[in-house]
Design a protein around this nucleic acid. Structure first.
Lengths: 144, 144
DNA sequence: ATTACAAATGATAATCATTATCATTATCGC
DNA sequence: GCGATAATGATAATGATTATCATTTGTAAT
C-alpha cells in the first residue's frame, strides 16, 4: 500500500512509476474487489484522472506480470483483476443465474490441503506450480 | 456415448436431435480434450461435415446449458469446452510460459476434500454449489 | 407417409473486449 | 536540466462471439 513499496517494485522491474500507474493502484486499494479494465477506466474518469483505456489495459497487464495483480475470469466474457494477497488467496463463488461473485479468503484447511496437493502434482506431473485459482459455481442466496 | 443417451437428453430439454449436434458430440468423444469453437469447426470441416461456425457456437452453448459439456478458460482469450464427467472432474495445470494445458482427473483425496468444503461454503455463504473448477498455474516439464 | 409449424441452420453483418500503431509526452539516471 | 527511452493517448485493427434473417430440417399429429 505505501507508495514507497510500489516505487521499489517498479525499480526492480526496471519500469517507471507514472501517475497513471499510481492512480490505477489506488483504485484497487479503495475498491478492493475484482475489477474489469472498463471499470477501472470509469472509476478513474469519475475521479477526474484522465487515463486512456489503452493505458489501463497495458498497465493491468504489466501489474499482472509483476505479480501485484492477478487475472480472474468468471465466464462473462471479460477479464477481471484483483490485488494479489499472499499467502491467502481469494477463491470465488459465481452465481450461475445472476452472475454475481462472492470472493472469500481461503479457509485454513484449504491452504493446507492445496499446499500438499501442489507438492503431489509437482512430482506426479513434473510441473512447478506457482499459483492456483478455484471457482465454485452455483446459486447465490438471492437466486437459490 | 451411445446415441440413444443423447436422444433422451435432448428430448428431456425439448430440443431436436440434429446432425450438427450429433457431429459435434462425436468430435468431443474422439478427441476427448478441451476444444475451442474454432477447433471443433475445423475438426468437422476436416471430416467433410459442413457445420457453420455460428451453429458450432450455438450448440456448444446449448450443450453447456444441458450440462453435457462445460466451459473452461485458460487465459488465452478463448473459451474451451470439454465433456462433463461426474463425479470425477478434470482439473487443469496451465503453463505460464508456453500455455500448454494438462488435464488430470481429480485425485480421490481432492474429491473428498472438495465435497466437504462445498458443504462448509454452502452453509457459511448460503450458496448452493453445483460445480467447481480448479486451475494450477506454473511451469510445465519443458519450460521449468 | 404427409403435413404443418416451430426450431435449427448458414451466411454474414454487427458487437465488443482487447491489442497494435504511431506521434507526442513524461520519467529518471546522469 | 538533458537526453535517451519508456509511457501515454487517440484511434484503427483484430479476433472471438453474437445477432439477424431467409431457408431448411425435425417432429408430432394427422
Amino acid at each position: 500500500m505505501p507508495k514507497r513499496e510500489w516505487d521499489r517494485a517498479f525499480a526492480y522491474f526496471k519500469k517507471k512509476m507514472t501517475s497513471s500507474r499510481q492512480a490505477i493502484m489506488e483504485v484497487f486499494e479503495e475498491e478492493k474487489k475484482h475489477l474489469s479494465a472498463e471499470e477501472v477506466y470509469d472509476s478513474l474518469k469519475g475521479k477526474n484522472q484522465k487515463v486512456g483505456i489503452a493505458t489501463v489495459y497495458r498497465n493491468l497487464d504489466l501489474l499482472t506480470q509483476m505479480g501485484i495483480l492477478h487475472r480472474v475470469y468468471f465466464g462473462d466474457g471479460l477479464e477481471h483483476y484483483e490485488i494479489t494477497r499472499k499467502p491467502i488467496h481469494h477463491h470465488h463463488l459465481v452465481c450461475n443465474k445472476c452472475g454475481s461473485v462472492i470472493d472469500y479468503s481461503e479457509l485454513i484447511e484449504e491452504s493446507e490441503f492445496i499446499s500438499k496437493l501442489e507438492q503431489e502434482l509437482n512430482t506426479r506431473y513434473n510441473f512447478k506450480i506457482e499459483s492456483h485459482q478455484m471457482y465454485f459455481y452455483g446459486l447465490c442466496k438471492k437466486c437459490r
